Simulated assay, not measured.
Amino acid sequence: MRESWRWFGPNDPVSLDDIRQAGATDIVSALHHIPTGEVWPVDAIRRHKASIETADSGRSQLKWSVVESIPVHEDIKLSRPGHRGYVDNWIASMENLAECGIKVICYNFMPVIDWTRTDLSYRLPSGAYALRFDQRKFAAFDLFILERKDAECDYSEQEITEAKATFSAMTEKEKQQLTENIIAGLPGRMTDSYRLDDFRSALDNYRGIDRDTLRRNLFAFLSRVLPIAEKLGVKLAIHPDDPPRDMLGLPRIICTAEDLEFLFGELPSPANGMTLCVGTYGSRPDNDLPEMARRFSPRIHFAHLRGVSRDADEQRSFYEACHLDSDIDMVQVVWNLLAEEQRRGDSAPKIFIRPDHGHQMMDDIGKTVNPGYSAIGRLKGLAEIRGVIRALSINHLS
């Protein structure tokens, strides 16, 4: 497998030299400064690629191998009039990336919000900090801070009572922090915590859009993209919805093994692949991650190797656990990925993996970091995964 590391560009607190020291060889990155829906120009791709791959004499070489992500415009997800122009732009960006030799593209089809956590600095018994999703806090936000129209229809009476108690116990500062944490997953101009009206408007756009409709819109998008990806030799790797279930009145369509089976059954193109985000899928107890790694192994081009621990009394709540100490049998997941690489043969491209959502720990505590993307926690995770790969490769696959 190819050890990769997500890098957010020149302003990332984790430098390319830091990544070299971690031992990763491949970079996962994107042109974050280009607004969603616009074409990524070849010149901009080449400049970003050169900033990654040009190293001083004697430095370890890095390679930009995976894009995460080319954002999919909301008009495509909603199939609004004129959305085909945004599809054309997405295809043009893909073509320009392929021209520059970058042929693995992670993307998602999550409406409005890319990911959701209620706590960005959840204190662990070790003293380190993790990302956390707390269902009761989330319901309190939805019902009593956002005050989403008809939100109460999505909750039981008991859940509403618990959410109200949670809300009532919060200070104004805690309510503000919760709002900022949840809206941290919003794209573009809605990242300011006070823009709740923008958030409500974005959610209102999806009234009347159910799972079947959103899935049809995904399939329509891919029906145009996949034939071109095949010709270019590009592998698309869809990321699951995070958390993988309907929320905020929004439908979610990439949540379970059954969702993937339906996607690949309807669109069997060899370019149609997946990102195995172990932690995201693992936040649902009905997803068997080792089995998914085996069942969908030919479709896996990229993997986020992280795990979560779900609350015993509320399985929808979880925190980002250590990479090898979670509810997921990570060793078996890695075993199945290695077995797939062996099946593909030496001449086939390797599966790109990266550590994800590491703990903020040791000297990183107190530093400004991208939530979940501090250096030391991911270094620890990568070292653990590397040890598993090495042990399995020597003892079982040699």
Rank of each mutant, 00 (worst) to 15 (best):
I113D: 04
E384R: 06
S29D: 06
F221E: 00
S201M: 14
L196A: 03
D114G: 13
A220M: 12
K49G: 00
L31F: 12
A339R: 09
C277H: 06
I145P: 01
D204K: 12
I52D: 02
L250Q: 07
S309A: 15
G265N: 15
P41T: 08
E172S: 13
A303T: 01
D327G: 10
R390N: 14
K367S: 13
V112E: 06
R200E: 00
D198R: 06
F302G: 06
A321D: 14
K103L: 04
I105C: 04
E172W: 09
A169P: 02
N395F: 10
F352S: 14
D288Q: 03
Y373Q: 12
E68K: 08
E320S: 13
D212V: 11
P71L: 01
A169V: 08
F141M: 01
D17F: 01
Y373T: 07
A24M: 07
H73F: 02
A339P: 06
A293D: 10
L186Y: 00
W115S: 13
R123C: 10
R207A: 11
V331N: 06
D313V: 12
L196W: 05
T36E: 15
L78M: 11
S393K: 11
F221W: 06
K164V: 10
N272P: 12
H396E: 15
D346P: 08
R343L: 10
N205Q: 15
P227T: 07
S156W: 03
C100W: 06
E174K: 10
I253C: 03
D150R: 15
T171W: 09
C322W: 11
G282F: 04
L236D: 00
L214N: 12
Q135I: 11
A383C: 05
I300F: 08
T25W: 03
D242G: 05
L289K: 04
I52K: 00
G366M: 05
R207H: 14
E162Q: 15
G188M: 07
D56N: 10
A383H: 11
R390T: 13
V87Y: 00
G279F: 03
A375E: 03
D119K: 12
D259Y: 12
L260S: 13
